[in-house]
């Protein structure tokens, strides 16, 4: 039986294992190897160039801009969408009616085709025919060229990013809130926590800790991955003002066909994502679970 069981187990695991090796492990290792080569599509064989790609990145102003832009984008989108998601979840949770409708409305952007909604945003933010600037004109403000001015482009993309991800965070927070035993909030009320803020501090926030940590990390990772809106709306412009990591990786790899350099950028991206996950599992997990 034991031998038979092991055999059956391997038979069941085999398709997944093969796909894992071929489609995930091998290409990931290859990407890591490529990062240390000068591989360009069509030029064979590639040469091992050690850390040259990373040295180039260090001096490449384009990459630096891209890196800084990504950080700025993340620094705006992640905190606002986490706080906003929590705020919406608390507001909806306490609402007497309309909970399903509100949840649906705020969640809608998550399931909407990003590319199409980016186009809708482009129309909204259009400097001359866009309703946003029309509203601003009506109150006497000359609105900027949101997506085509290097001063506002990143901010505009961040606004779209927040709009897109806030509902996602809200749903995660709502799941976290339902997991808090109702009795605890009642106990807090009986214990004299009379202000909503006191109950939030005493019960909701500490018990939401694991959810909150998770939402923070997910939001950071999701916003580091910003690509669609940039690819559709700005292509990194104007003048690299909206160049972000994945878009730089995309253009280096698939427009300029410098796969080695592109792989090196991917590796930076991977290190950031792994770092964020490490923060979650190692440092913070211990402080928010009450075992």
């Amino acid at each position: 039986m034991r031998r038979g069981e092991a055999l059956a187990a391997w038979m069941l695991t085999l398709p997944a294992a093969l796909a894992f090796l071929l489609l995930l492990l091998a290409p990931t290792l290859a990407a890591i190897a490529l990062a240390f080569s000068d591989y360009e599509l069509g030029v064979w064989p590639p040469h091992w160039i050690g850390l040259d790609n990373f040295r180039e990145m260090w001096t490449d102003r384009g990459f630096r801009t891209s890196f800084v832009n990504t950080l700025v984008y993340v620094a705006i989108v992640a905190p606002v969408s986490v706080a906003g998601g929590l705020g919406l979840a608390l507001l909806i949770e306490g609402a007497a009616r309309g909970r399903t409708i509100f949840r649906a409305i705020f969640f809608l952007p998550v399931v909407s085709l990003t590319v199409a909604m980016a186009a809708a945003w482009q129309y909204l933010l259009h400097p001359t025919i866009g309703p946003v600037n029309a509203v601003l004109r009506a109150v006497g403000i000359a609105g900027p060229a949101w997506l085509s001015s290097s001063d506002t482009v990143l901010l505009s993309l961040a606004a779209i990013g927040i709009w897109e991800s806030i509902g996602f965070n809200m749903v995660l927070f709502m799941a976290g809130l339902t997991a808090i035993p109702r009795e605890l909030r009642e106990a807090a009320a009986v214990d004299g926590a009379r202000a909503a803020w006191d109950r939030f501090r005493l019960v909701t926030w500490p018990l939401l800790g694991p959810t909150a940590l998770f939402v923070v990390v997910i939001s950071l990772i999701r916003s580091v991955r910003v690509f669609d809106t940039v690819a559709v709306l700005t292509r990194g412009g104007p003048n690299k003002a909206s160049e972000v990591l994945l878009y730089t990786m995309y253009t280096e790899g698939f427009t300029f066909l410098r796969l080695g350099y592109s792989a090196a950028i991917t590796l930076v991206f991977l290190v950031i994502v792994l770092g964020l996950m490490l923060v979650q599992t190692r440092i913070l997990d211990r402080r928010v679970h009450y075992g």
Partner: peptide
């Protein structure tokens, strides 16, 4: 408000603050 009634309560599942 519950906190203004001078009432204390022991809940069925104790409702202790886990943190």
């Amino acid at each position: 408000h519950p906190g203004a009634r001078d009432v204390a309560m022991v809940f069925q599942n104790y409702a202790l603050y886990p943190h």
